[in-house]
Computed example of a mutant assay.
Amino acid sequence: MGRLTTHVLDAAHGCPGSALKVDLYRVEGTELVLVAQQLTNADGRCDAPLLEGDSYVSGVYQLQFHVGDYYRRRGVTLPEPAFLDVVVLRVGIDADQAHYHVPLLVSPYSYSTYRGS
């Protein structure tokens, strides 16, 4: 069975992005349907896949990483409004593929992502 996983690396502090809220939505036309919400663990990873089993179907999904809240909790002074508050990534998933891993490398002013393994 396939699965969608993620992890967050805090490039500004050189550590995992722990206790960072991640939301996963399925994009259905102009609507977003909430599929999962998790907090990253001490290693910056979600404890369970965001998507797996019967819910792992082909389609377009939107990941939302709440990085502004994460940096505020770390005591980082951000401008208001924050330059990066919620990082939004839309990814297409082909259910024939066994595993999609979407890492996020983030700082208060930049981010990078790729399809990991």
Rank of each mutant, 00 (worst) to 15 (best):
40 T>F: 05
105 L>G: 11
26 R>S: 13
39 L>C: 05
33 V>H: 02
16 P>T: 04
26 R>W: 03
16 P>N: 07
74 R>W: 07
62 Q>L: 15
67 V>D: 06
23 D>T: 04
104 L>R: 10
73 R>L: 14
35 V>D: 02
60 V>Q: 03
56 Y>P: 08
57 V>S: 00
58 S>D: 09
13 H>F: 09
7 H>L: 06
70 Y>N: 06
45 R>G: 04
46 C>R: 08
49 P>G: 03
90 R>N: 11
115 R>W: 15
15 C>L: 14
42 A>V: 15
16 P>M: 01
109 Y>F: 12
26 R>N: 03
78 L>D: 04
23 D>L: 15
64 Q>Y: 06
116 G>K: 12
69 D>C: 02
43 D>L: 05
65 F>C: 01
41 N>Q: 13
1 M>V: 03
27 V>E: 04
70 Y>P: 01
62 Q>P: 01
60 V>W: 01
73 R>T: 13
86 V>Y: 00
37 Q>C: 14
38 Q>V: 13
64 Q>T: 09
35 V>F: 02
81 P>V: 11
44 G>T: 12
45 R>Y: 03
93 I>E: 02
28 E>L: 12
48 A>S: 12
20 L>S: 04
78 L>S: 05
26 R>D: 05
4 L>G: 06
99 H>Q: 07
59 G>A: 08
1 M>S: 07
103 P>Q: 08
37 Q>F: 11
25 Y>D: 09
34 L>G: 08
103 P>E: 07
56 Y>M: 02
117 S>H: 13
101 H>Y: 08
111 Y>V: 04
14 G>F: 00
4 L>R: 08
115 R>N: 07
5 T>E: 11
87 V>M: 03
95 A>Q: 15
